[in-house]
Amino acid sequence: MTQEGYNPRILGFFCHWCCYAAADSAGVSRYQYPPNVRVIRVMCTGRIDVRFILEAFRCGADGVFTGG
């Protein structure tokens, strides 16, 4: 996508116990992925209020990634 000039800003809500841990171990293994996501750590995806997602879009996010 970036080659076509589309460089989306993605906000991630990652569960501390699984997705956040997985993102860390992707780092330990030096997996490379595009630098488009900014992560907010939560203790469980159950914490994610629908208002957070709407607010993220209002703040210009092109996508929201919830991982848990």
Binding site: S25, V28, Q32, R38, V39, I40
Partner: peptide, 27 residues
Amino acid sequence: NIRDQCAWVHAQEPEEATQKSKDLVRM
């Protein structure tokens, strides 16, 4: 988290990684 989820996974994109680090620090 500017190592495991930034420097390590964007090793070929120093500028983007620096920008991401700034964003993460701001947040």
